[in-house]
Amino acid sequence: MFEIYLILATCFLLPICFLITNNIIYIYHHLKFLNQIEEKTNIINTDNKHVLDIAKIYISRKKWLDCITILEFYMKQININELIILVQYYNYIGLCYQSVNIYKIATKYYLKAYNKAPYIKQTLKNLANIYKLSGNIKSASKINDQLTDLNKNEDI
């Protein structure tokens, strides 16, 4: 009887241990990556690629305010010729606001990204999605038409 109890307890605890171990490994790799970035560069002069990687980590861990704060800080330091990076910053900030259901501000950032580079598919997808979520179906269909035209032109 005691052996059956141990077998049942083991069967119940093994999946829990597996999930906990995977999360610990995941967090360890993120912290290791952040430490590598900190050792390589000065915090103020961090490369934009590293900033985007850090933002992805914050987004995956649902640290929306941290992500918005770091992107807003580094957005002020971007050169004018780094337009694609700026558009990615706007998209990530919009995603953060969208994740906490603040659709007006998310739309504002997606529109900033759209105004900087109206030909980027991810920006168009994000903008169409936020219009759908906020109930603006007319604008969503208009953006979807632009996305369809962009895809047709790409195929040609």
Score class of each variant (00 low, 15 high):
residue 86 L to K: 13
residue 76 K to E: 15
residue 85 I to E: 07
residue 61 R to M: 09
residue 72 E to P: 08
residue 102 I to S: 04
residue 138 K to E: 15
residue 19 L to D: 09
residue 61 R to T: 13
residue 75 M to F: 09
residue 46 T to Q: 01
residue 78 I to N: 13
residue 109 Y to Q: 02
residue 20 I to N: 06
residue 57 I to E: 04
residue 51 V to G: 00
residue 45 N to L: 03
residue 27 I to E: 11
residue 84 I to Q: 12
residue 101 N to H: 09
residue 96 C to A: 15
residue 133 L to H: 03
residue 131 Y to E: 12
residue 105 I to R: 03
residue 62 K to V: 03
residue 125 K to S: 12
residue 23 N to Q: 15
residue 54 I to Q: 06
residue 108 K to D: 11
residue 119 Y to H: 13
residue 143 I to S: 02
residue 86 L to D: 05
residue 74 Y to F: 12
residue 12 F to R: 07
residue 123 T to G: 01
residue 84 I to V: 08
residue 88 Q to M: 07
residue 30 H to N: 15
residue 28 Y to R: 14
residue 98 Q to V: 01
residue 144 N to S: 10
residue 67 C to I: 05
residue 126 N to F: 00
residue 53 D to F: 01
residue 49 K to Q: 14
residue 89 Y to A: 09
residue 71 L to P: 00
residue 32 K to W: 09
residue 93 I to F: 04
residue 97 Y to W: 14
residue 56 K to D: 15
residue 45 N to R: 05
residue 118 P to W: 08
residue 136 N to E: 11
residue 83 L to S: 10
residue 80 I to M: 04
residue 82 E to D: 15
residue 109 Y to F: 11
residue 91 N to G: 02
residue 121 K to C: 05
residue 23 N to W: 10
residue 67 C to L: 13
residue 126 N to G: 14
residue 44 I to Y: 12
residue 50 H to T: 04
residue 133 L to S: 12
residue 21 T to W: 10
residue 97 Y to H: 15
residue 18 F to E: 05
residue 113 A to Y: 06
residue 18 F to H: 10
residue 19 L to S: 08
residue 73 F to I: 08
residue 14 L to V: 14
residue 105 I to M: 02
residue 13 L to R: 01
residue 111 L to M: 14
residue 134 S to Q: 10
residue 33 F to L: 08
residue 140 A to E: 06
residue 75 M to E: 10
residue 78 I to F: 05
residue 12 F to V: 14
residue 99 S to R: 07
residue 34 L to P: 04
residue 76 K to T: 11
residue 97 Y to F: 15
residue 119 Y to T: 14
residue 51 V to Y: 03
residue 130 I to G: 04
residue 134 S to W: 01
residue 80 I to P: 04
residue 107 T to H: 06
residue 111 L to R: 06
residue 44 I to N: 10
residue 109 Y to N: 03
residue 85 I to M: 00
residue 63 K to E: 13
residue 96 C to K: 02
residue 140 A to K: 06
residue 137 I to G: 02
residue 94 G to I: 09
residue 105 I to H: 00
residue 103 Y to F: 13
residue 13 L to T: 14
residue 138 K to I: 13
residue 131 Y to L: 03
residue 93 I to R: 06
residue 119 Y to M: 14
residue 77 Q to R: 15
residue 34 L to H: 09
residue 61 R to G: 06
residue 32 K to L: 11
residue 17 C to L: 11
residue 42 N to M: 01
residue 107 T to A: 02
residue 105 I to C: 05
residue 90 Y to T: 04
residue 65 L to V: 11
residue 23 N to S: 05
residue 15 P to R: 12
residue 108 K to N: 09
residue 100 V to G: 02
residue 103 Y to D: 04
residue 33 F to Q: 07
residue 122 Q to A: 05
residue 106 A to K: 01
residue 73 F to N: 12
residue 27 I to L: 15
residue 114 Y to C: 05
